[in-house]
Design a protein around this nucleic acid. Structure first.
Lengths: 123, 123
DNA sequence: CTTCGTTATATTCAGAAAAACATAACGACG
DNA sequence: CGTCGTTATGTTTTTCTGAATATAACGAAG
């Protein structure tokens, strides 16, 4: 889910996550599909979970991120607001900036990492 | 738990978290107390959970982060290795670097955030 | 050889989180 | 006014996590 190797970054409001890689991807998919349920399907996520994430996003910001319509042509749908699009762009820019800023440090740490788990050590 | 306002950052090995703010604090407390159980107490965490985190840390890196001794003087104890100390320092340096690199972007986002939850929006 | 405090580990319990399932509401459109 | 696909929401079930509890192992020190 992390878009940058070795790094997972979330922006917090107070102390709960306002946006992270998952929500960003979800909003991007809602933008391209025009539907929460289609985006959820593409992410292999239940519609309910996706809807809850959208609800949390809208609750975290003073402007709506996703607007929904129920009923009507094609049953309804969802559109990402200009702010929502901007939010995803900014989050990705932040990921990119942070990733670049600490890339060499992460690489240094990763040279000390192992892939598979290992048995605990004793003195 | 996040040491930097508005930001939570974890370093991943493959796709599971190798170190984040919680593990870093735990290792620092083990270093200052010389005991997993004392560190756990200070963090309000069960000994078992703390032990599992230490196990995960040691499994994530090619060098041990915490070495433990069972029995003996004072019942045993745990010491943070030089690498472990370095790991915590480097993680905090990474947090600091990333936080500085994206501080203004985070502030811009935070100006669009609200503290309390809000009802969902309709089109 | 008993005591002591810690590490190590299994087991059990409770609560939270997630998933699964079900169903209602909705409005355009034929 | 029935159909359709979607949003919205309730209910139930399952899974996961964490906490709590219990106990063994250990080795220094008295």
């Amino acid at each position: 889910m992390a878009r940058y190797p070795g790094l997972m970054l979330r922006i917090l409001a107070e102390d709960h996550p306002a946006i992270g890689p998952g929500k960003a991807q979800l909003v991007a998919l809602i933008d391209s599909t025009g539907s929460i349920s289609a985006a959820a399907r593409e992410m292999g996520m239940s519609y309910r979970r996706a809807w809850q994430l959208v609800e949390a996003l809208n609750a975290s910001f003073i402007e709506p991120v996703v607007m929904t319509a129920v009923g009507g042509k094609r049953g309804g749908g969802a559109v990402v607001t200009a702010f929502g699009r901007e939010l995803v762009q900014q989050f990705r820019a932040i990921e990119d900036k942070a990733s670049k800023a600490i890339a060499t440090d992460i690489e240094r740490l990763q040279r000390r990492m192992r892939k598979p788990p290992r048995a605990p050590q004793r003195q």
